[in-house]
Computed example of a mutant assay.
Amino acid sequence: MAMQDKAFKIIKSSGEKADFSISKLRSSLFRSGADELTVDRIVNVVRDELYQGISTKEIYNRAFSLLKKSKSIYASKYKLKSAIYELGPTGFPFEKFIGSLMEYSGYEVEVGSILQGKCVSHEVDVIAIKNGQHIVAECKFHSDKKTTCNVKVPLYINSRYQDIVSQYKNTAKCPNEGWVVTNTRFTTDAITYGKCVGLYLLSWDYPKDNGLKDRIDRLGLYPITVSTLLTNREKQFLLSRDIVLCRQLANDKFYLDHLGVSETRKTKILSEISKLCNSN
């Protein structure tokens, strides 16, 4: 049996076993913007290094390393999913990130507001208003990749949303859309319940073709954590200053001076970020 035809079992982050899929690897590499020759070369290298029981993390790390050697912007876009996890552990940078995505999409946005419900007050992660849309969004950040958003999450959030709607009913301040946003995935029951009660659910890959990954790529609004040149300490400093998007750093370059970044590194970092912002 030829190497490319041999079935390899890989271990997913959840601990489940699955068949290795060359087509999935190719698709993820193409999403980074890499050209066909680069994708073919990386697929061939990764395939030749496969062994039974290899983890998806090892496959990802190898592909990422090869992309970085080829072109850093490819590597940055390829690591988008893990970069979202790097927004943790508190979850607040994730709320800021979602707020920024909405703001750059033309919404008037508030992050971390308190709204009085009919029964109790509620801390609302993101309020976004545009053209008659009045969104109240709750962000559920998980640092563990194995964690999913089960049906308890939209159940709880819907009860809070309904309490707020009851308070502002028949007024200009009444929200008309409740959202649940997560960096992981929703269970089938969570999606079914969300559809039933009219909650809008947004996750890494849901709704299909309009999930977080699709919106980020389409808008070119990448989190600062995708950078392959900034250190973890530098990323945390920027996040602590509410710089969550590459686009924000491009507009506020002086933060790199605060960090004591050399002119040479500064030029490279800003070049990487500029390419990301303009890659779409």
Rank of each mutant, 00 (worst) to 15 (best):
I22E: 15
K24W: 08
L25P: 03
R26I: 12
S27Y: 11
L29N: 01
L29S: 04
F30N: 08
F30P: 00
F30I: 05
R31W: 02
R31I: 00
G33P: 00
D35C: 01
D35I: 01
E36F: 04
E36S: 09
T38E: 07
V39G: 06
D40V: 02
R41L: 11
I42A: 09
I42K: 06
V43Y: 06
V43I: 15
N44V: 07
V45C: 10
V45Q: 13
R47L: 15
R47Q: 15
D48Y: 11
D48L: 05
E49F: 10
L50Q: 11
L50H: 13
L50S: 13
L50R: 14
L50A: 11
Y51D: 01
Y51A: 07
Y51E: 11
Q52H: 13
G53P: 12
I54M: 14
S55A: 08
S55Y: 08
E58D: 15
E58K: 14
E58R: 14
I59M: 10
I59R: 08
Y60K: 12
Y60F: 15
Y60G: 02
N61K: 15
N61G: 02
N61Y: 10
A63H: 04
A63E: 07
S65H: 13
S65A: 14
L66E: 12
L67M: 07
K68Y: 14
K68E: 14
K69W: 07
K69A: 12
S72V: 15
I73V: 13
I73W: 05
I73C: 03
Y74H: 11
A75W: 09
S76Y: 09
S76L: 05
K77D: 00
K79G: 00
K81N: 03
K81V: 06
I84C: 07
I84F: 14
Y85K: 13
E86P: 00
G88M: 12
P89L: 11
T90L: 08
G91W: 12
G91F: 12
P93T: 00
P93N: 00
K96D: 00
K96S: 05
K96A: 01
F97P: 12
I98K: 05
G99M: 06
G99Q: 08
S100W: 02
S100R: 15
S100V: 03
L101I: 14
M102I: 01
M102D: 03
E103A: 13
E103G: 02
E103I: 00
Y104G: 06
Y104L: 11
Y104M: 13
S105Q: 14
G106L: 12
G106H: 11
Y107S: 02
Y107H: 10
Y107W: 07
E110C: 06
V111D: 01
G112K: 09
G112E: 01
G112D: 01
S113R: 12
Q116V: 03
Q116W: 03
G117N: 08
K118V: 00
K118N: 06
C119H: 11
V120H: 07
S121G: 03
S121Y: 05
H122N: 05
E123S: 07
V124P: 03
D125H: 07
V126T: 04
V126A: 02
I127C: 04
I127V: 13
I127F: 01
A128S: 05
A128C: 04
I129F: 08
I129A: 04
K130H: 09
K130F: 03
G132F: 10
G132P: 09
Q133D: 11
H134Y: 14
H134I: 07
I135W: 13
V136R: 08
V136T: 09
V136H: 06
A137V: 06
E138C: 03
